[in-house]
Simulated scan of single mutants.
Amino acid sequence: MKLYYVTGACSLADRIALAEAGIACDFIRVDLHTRTTQDGASFDAVNAKGYVPVLVLDSGEMITENIAILSWIAEQSPGLRPEGPLGWFRLLEATAYISTEIHGGFKPFFHSGSPDEKARAAAEVSKRLGYLAESMTSDFLLGPNLSVADAYLFVMLTWARRNELQIPPRLEAFYQRMISRETVRTALAQEGLEALAA
């Protein structure tokens, strides 16, 4: 199995989730500027969409899009999704919200947005993080146990910190809980991001 990733990108959530699930995987770094993989292959030949993450299963089948990959991981490791009759749907609800409302909100920071665009984006992302903070009633986003949605939220918080956005205290405490996990610290080290654990 292979995961194509970019350092510090949303693919970091998949790396963390795979580690939490105990699923062995090879990780292939992608340079989106040169459109090549670390071994010099064309990334566009791997994924015509042109972005990470991409998970290639041992069968050769490919899964793209973070929500789909995280869902596949949760399917392999049911402990990484909430229990109960609506557990699966709560997971989809959370990952979709993170993807569309928070992840997408960072676009001006990564695509040379103007100062005004970045200010508006910062306000919107902070507001949406506030919603998640208010909705949390336990240590993790969907209850007392970690789910794949927490891995995705953690990466969004690394982006928020990098761009000096306001993080609600409850989510800052969540960030510290995530940092204390060996899987998270190892994933950060594997991508050369040890400073995020400081």
Score class of each variant (00 low, 15 high):
K127P: 00
A121F: 01
E124A: 14
R120T: 05
K107D: 02
K118Y: 01
S138K: 09
I98V: 14
F140Q: 05
Y97D: 07
S114R: 00
E124P: 00
H103N: 14
S114N: 02
S126P: 06
R120W: 01
P115K: 01
F110K: 10
I98S: 08
A149R: 05
E117S: 11
H111Q: 12
N145A: 14
E134R: 13
F106K: 05
E117L: 05
I102R: 08
I102D: 08
E117K: 04
T137V: 12
P144N: 13
K127L: 10
R128A: 02
L129N: 08
N145H: 15
I98D: 09
S99N: 15
Y97Q: 09
S126K: 04
G104T: 06
E124N: 13
F109M: 01
A122S: 05
G104W: 09
L141R: 07
Y97A: 10
V148T: 14
K118H: 01
S147D: 03
K127H: 13
A149C: 08
M136N: 08
S135L: 10
G105P: 11
T137F: 03
A149I: 11
A121G: 04
L142V: 08
S147I: 03
T100S: 15
I102G: 10
L129P: 08
S112T: 06
D116N: 04
A123G: 00
L146T: 07
D139M: 11
A96G: 13
G104V: 08
P108F: 09
G143N: 09
T137W: 01
A119Q: 02
T100Q: 12
E134T: 09
K107T: 07
E101K: 05
L146E: 00
A96H: 12
A119T: 09
D150F: 13
D116Y: 00
S126I: 04
A122K: 02
T137L: 07
P108Q: 04
N145R: 14
I98Q: 15
Y131A: 13
G113Y: 08
K107I: 00
L142G: 11
P108M: 05
E101I: 00
F140P: 06
S114L: 01
H111G: 00
M136L: 11
H111W: 06
S138R: 12
S135F: 04
F140H: 13
P108S: 05
S135Q: 15
S99A: 14
R128E: 04
S112G: 05
F109W: 01
L132V: 11
P144M: 10
R128G: 04
P144H: 13
F110C: 11
S147W: 03
Y97W: 13
E124Y: 09
K127G: 04
L129E: 09
S99F: 10
V125S: 08
S112E: 12
L132M: 13
T137K: 15
L141V: 08
A149W: 07
D139A: 15
L132I: 13
S99K: 06
A133D: 12
G104E: 07
S138P: 02
S112L: 07
D116W: 02
S112A: 12
F109D: 01
S135Y: 04
S126M: 07
K107E: 03
M136C: 12
G104N: 07
F140N: 08
A119H: 01
A122C: 03
G113W: 08
K127I: 00
L142C: 10
A133P: 09
P115N: 00
G113E: 03
E101L: 04
G143W: 07
E134V: 06
K127Q: 12
Y131L: 15
